[in-house]
Design a protein around this nucleic acid. Structure first.
Lengths: 134, 134
DNA sequence: TTATGTGCAAAACATTTGCAGGAGT
DNA sequence: ACTCCTGCAAATGTTTTGCACATAA
């Protein structure tokens, strides 16, 4: 989990990490591609996917397996939960305490070796609530 | 949420529902397709997708947006949580009490209108634990 | 210098959709 | 009859991969 183990510090890697760090919006790979392309116009989408995957594997970033058709990425690796707008698909952090004790409950209830958990709320975001008013 | 509202009771629909009801394994669309094809060899994969989608929309079945690349489907619509094997991708139910109160916490913490929540544990299933021993 | 990474394009998957013919009600 | 539904195949969207060249260490 140290930073960038076994990995060269390439320009592409660096800029992907920087751009992901700038936003709180949990972008998809394609959105990261768009952000990065403004600074590195010749970068390939494949490179973005490869790097996001590698960075997630080494724990530098988080790969979110939330609802919807695309994976999303998050520069914040500390445990936290998410809420996803059922209307527009946007994903935000939700600041409620991490429920460590439910992993004990899970351990009691299951023969799996428990590694972790994630809570995803679904709801309607502010701007979709607005739009729904007319 | 009543059963099959606004929907014709076609053979395909009926058998998809029956087959999904037989298993507790949260199959993917493709797995449902394989199950159903044994009884209806000429059914199309598109039909399976269309019906799973429709049945999920009307609340007759559950569409699980869990980790992994494929959506999974569940004949049990009562709220419950899942655990996914980090190794083989298998998804099982996990029988811990539904944490209703965290939706109140979420309501306090977010400007979203909260609709629901889901908890997904990750772990290593029995048979993958076995395999890991050698 | 050499293993790792990149750009590009093609391939691989998962899912959706258009359409002409078929079947519930 | 009159919709709604199906099978088929093609299209779409997302992610992965092969390969020749480039580059960080």
């Amino acid at each position: 989990m140290e930073s960038l183990p076994n990995m060269r510090l390439t320009t592409q890697r660096q800029i992907i990490l920087e751009e992901l760090g700038k936003v709180t919006s949990h972008p998809t790979a394609n959105e990261v591609y768009d952000m990065v392309r403004k600074r590195l116009p010749r970068i390939g989408l494949g490179t973005v996917y490869r790097n996001l995957e590698l960075l997630a594997e080494s724990g530098v970033i988080l790969k979110l397996e939330v609802g919807g058709t695309q994976k999303r990425f998050d520069a914040t690796v500390e445990p936290h939960y998410h809420i996803r707008c059922a209307q527009c698909g946007k994903v935000d952090d939700i600041e409620i305490p991490v429920q460590e004790q439910i992993e004990d409950a899970a351990h009691q209830a299951s023969s799996y070796e428990i590694l972790g958990h994630h809570i995803e709320f679904s709801g309607i975001c502010n701007s979709c609530q607005q739009k729904g008013m007319n």
